[in-house]
Design a binder for these strands. Sequence first.
DNA 1: TATGAATGAGCATTCATTCAT
DNA 2: GATGAATGAATGCTCATTCAT
Lengths: 195, 195, 195, 195
Amino acid sequence: MGKSSDGKYDIILHAAIDVISEKGLDKTSISDIVKKAGVAQGTFYLYFSSKNALIPAIADNLLTITFESVKEKIQGKETFWSILEVMIDETFRITKEYKNIIILCYSGLAIDHSMEKWEAIYQPYYDWLENIIKKAIQQNEIISDINLKWTAKTIINLVENASERFYISQVQDDTIEVYKIEVFNFIKRSLITPS
Amino acid sequence: MGKSSDGKYDIILHAAIDVISEKGLDKTSISDIVKKAGVAQGTFYLYFSSKNALIPAIADNLLTITFESVKEKIQGKETFWSILEVMIDETFRITKEYKNIIILCYSGLAIDHSMEKWEAIYQPYYDWLENIIKKAIQQNEIISDINLKWTAKTIINLVENASERFYISQVQDDTIEVYKIEVFNFIKRSLITPS
Amino acid sequence: MGKSSDGKYDIILHAAIDVISEKGLDKTSISDIVKKAGVAQGTFYLYFSSKNALIPAIADNLLTITFESVKEKIQGKETFWSILEVMIDETFRITKEYKNIIILCYSGLAIDHSMEKWEAIYQPYYDWLENIIKKAIQQNEIISDINLKWTAKTIINLVENASERFYISQVQDDTIEVYKIEVFNFIKRSLITPS
Amino acid sequence: MGKSSDGKYDIILHAAIDVISEKGLDKTSISDIVKKAGVAQGTFYLYFSSKNALIPAIADNLLTITFESVKEKIQGKETFWSILEVMIDETFRITKEYKNIIILCYSGLAIDHSMEKWEAIYQPYYDWLENIIKKAIQQNEIISDINLKWTAKTIINLVENASERFYISQVQDDTIEVYKIEVFNFIKRSLITPS
DNA sequence: TATGAATGAGCATTCATTCAT
DNA sequence: GATGAATGAATGCTCATTCAT
């Protein structure tokens, strides 16, 4: 189950992401995946213990993509609010691009009764934002009377959920800009230090 | 597909909820459901067009429970903030009681690629809260410079997600009270009219 | 799992016996059996809980054949020794005819770790012979100082094993008559009342 | 396929015996065996041509154990009857200790359609007993009017089957002593020279 | 000799759905 | 409306075996 080898793990993982994005989790057979990956049926099981074991791996991959791209775009941003703006932009962008994978993660982890894995996977992202918030408090950008951990998780969820409502639940009675601005303002009003 | 008959629809629906709560969606067969319901295999198909047709029905049932119980508990409450308090209390209570069904709705609707049905099902709840908010604005309890629809959805999501994080993702590093208070304050700070 | 219906149980059972006799247990797939039986794949599982569940059923069938044919041929025989003779003749005949099934029962029950089922299946045969022996003792044909149950089982085993050694283990350095006579005499010398 | 090397053959063979005794033949994979033996997957095939090739080797090993231990315990015994007693004791002891292996031999050789291998493996044991019987006849301990080969095989079978009925088929309605005495007496009455 | 990653054929079993009664 | 026996497509997974190193 190692992630090393000569890259077979990644080859299979990405083949899985491709096929599942297209056909959905339950319509995708292991046979489809290995065909796409160009390996034998049995090889799949050298790297993943079961079909279900794919989901956390895919979710992990997705979070990594999100997290990395946020960190990259954050470079040079100084204020908490500009960082929040980046998070919103990137989350919307990635939700649009990977909406099928996001859905598959929801259903996959739910089916597997392992919703708690979400939290484990998101932990590094949570920790990172917690730190950002801590600094923002020190900079007196935001109020200090909040539960750090809870707030970090809630912000991430708020942003993700807003973009999922926009792209996945297909409620587009407003423009994307409205959604982005509303979520930004909602959070800002809640956290900003009264002047 | 009528909801009438002599109640077989409800018998089957609740048998389904019971069994699926226990075993999870994918481990539950139609056979399990009809056995529990005490009807014949074929009878299921007189009331539901397919296994997947169960999920929206269950989700609908769940929303109705939530919505009704919120409306009931709201009686006599005057301020927006006391209504919000009730919503939080009831949402946490129902999330605890029906967490397996909530999970099943996530996975079921995701599998079915019909996440948008969530929105349709939640519509009455959204509409109701939108009205509450509108009145609160008129009463000058909360700020007026917000997108009504978006805010209604976001509040409902925020509350639900907080309780799901608590009960489903099993992140209980704080007490339930902390979670309830944080979510209440987070929303209140964002919406309250500056005095 | 009832043996009734319109005979599907028997149809499948005999199809299974046919195919397995030919190809051996592990080379036979359920698919082969249902094809031969002319029923659908799933129908098999309406009558047998698993592939392994076939074996005891087949063994039972075989014992019934043996037992019935022995009882039939016994008609009119008066002495214990003539009955023993019939048992030997019939056992050799049936061993020859059904040797593949006998082998499959051995391996099937062994694989299944349910060797003890042999005894349960053979019980009626054992009981019947026990009675025969009891009468023979009363008639003073054989000695009385023996353990009835043990002796009944041992005689049946001796005869079966002799014929299996002849037909299955393919040790035919002697004629079948030698085998039959030896086993008859071996038992007779051991049990006959000294004159 | 040599039995020499630096003992890898024996290491693998005994690993196989251990694992199969525990899990049964069909639940045991080559992978289990090599893991236990501490060698690589491919190494197995340097010493055994296939999985099925294990069975005769294991059976052979088992017969050797039985045969050797009988020969050892026989030392100093003079009469045929005391030798028979040893055979019974040792057979019961070994059946108890190795019952899972005995079962595996049954199923393994049956599956393989090579029941006749039993006879080849047992040949030395048969030959040895044949000689014992021959001497007993010369000593006038037992009757002479018997087929030597057939009788040797039958005695061995009788004893083995009695102990298998006791330990494997789990019919323990009597004590082990009853079983041992009955089988001893059954044979003795059949063979002893009338005084 | 020894390795162990890779292979890929093979199959029991499940279960949503139908339909004759 | 109600039944439940029958269907048969569909697939995750195992595992004996190979072979390049």
